[in-house]
Structures are given as structure tokens and as C-alpha cells.
């Protein structure tokens, strides 16, 4: 009971850029920092420390250089945790995979986020709108309460 109320009332979000185009990253930072959206009024706090986080927001496809750090960061977050894949890049590699160039896909773009770590909330859009990001994180909260 107290567990659920406390979890509902304080959610720490962490942001990791695995390799999108920056658009989604700025939008997530924007949601937290711009007074118009003000994530904190919904009791969601942006943090940069995996040990503190509950929600890991991942933007972008997983690249060869960022796969190891992504795994490590995911491990560093204590349970319960949920992962939100932000932007169409996070959801299905967006424009950087399967787009039909002659040489095929790039070797550097490895895979979707949910092939590396379990993803709970998918927030599509290129870039995901701030309202969608808030809604997406909110959609993940019930999962957080259950665990």
C-alpha cells in the first residue's frame, strides 16, 4: 500500500542517448527543463544517475558503441525499473535501418532497443512530442507499481 503510494509519488527518469539524431533527446530534456511542460509537477524528476532511476528513457537505435554501456546502465538500475523507448528510432530503429539503400544497412546500427533490454513503453514519433513523452512515462507507471 505505502509502497504503491510512494512509487506513484516520486519517479526518477534517466535518459540515455544510444544514437538517434538528437531530436528526441532534446525533446526529453525539454520536457524536464522547459517550464511549459515541467515534468516535476507530475512528480517525475530527471536524474543522471542510474542508481537513482526508476525509468530509463532510451532514444535511438542501439549502435555498436553504445550497446555495452546500455547493458551496463540497465544492470546498474535497481529493481523495479521500466524502460521507455522514445521516438521511432527507439521503437524500431527509425530511418536508420531497413530503409533500402543499395549497400543495405550500416554495420554500426545494430538493433532495436528491445532486442537488448526489455522495453515496457514505446513512445513513437519522429521526434516524439513532449505530450507523448509524458503520456508514455505515465503509461508505464502501473507496471512500476506492480513489480
Amino acid at each position: 500500500m505505502l509502497k504503491k503510494i510512494s512509487r506513484k509519488n516520486a519517479i526518477h527518469v534517466m535518459l540515455f542517448y544510444t544514437g538517434g539524431c538528437n531530436g528526441c533527446d532534446i525533446e526529453v530534456a525539454n520536457v524536464a527543463w522547459s517550464p511549459r511542460y515541467d515534468l516535476e509537477q507530475y512528480k517525475v524528476i530527471l536524474t543522471w544517475n542510474p542508481r537513482e532511476a526508476d525509468v530509463l528513457a532510451v532514444t535511438g537505435p542501439v549502435l555498436r558503441r553504445t550497446i555495452e554501456p546500455l547493458k551496463k546502465l540497465y544492470e546498474a538500475i535497481p529493481e523495479p525499473k521500466i524502460v521507455a523507448a522514445v521516438g521511432s528510432c527507439g521503437v524500431r530503429c527509425g530511418i536508420f535501418k531497413d530503409f533500402g539503400g543499395e549497400l543495405g544497412d550500416s554495420d554500426e546500427v545494430l538493433c532495436r532497443v528491445d532486442e537488448v533490454i526489455p522495453v515496457d513503453a514505446y513512445i513513437p514519433g519522429c521526434p516524439a512530442r513532449p505530450e507523448d513523452i509524458i503520456a508514455g512515462i505515465a503509461a508505464g507507471i502501473p507496471l512500476l507499481l506492480e513489480r
Binding site: 505505502l2 512509487r7 524528476i45
Partner: peptide, 19 residues
């Protein structure tokens, strides 16, 4: 901006960490 409710950063966050 509106900011977090009074108890969120000081109380609920701590309680959450205990769980």
C-alpha cells in the same frame, strides 16, 4: 513553473528508495 508537490522530494522519494 509549478514544481513538485511538497512531500515528493523529501518524503515519498525516500520512502520509494526503501522499497
Amino acid at each position: 513553473r509549478i514544481g513538485p508537490p511538497l512531500l515528493t522530494p523529501g518524503f515519498w522519494a525516500i520512502l520509494k528508495f526503501f522499497y
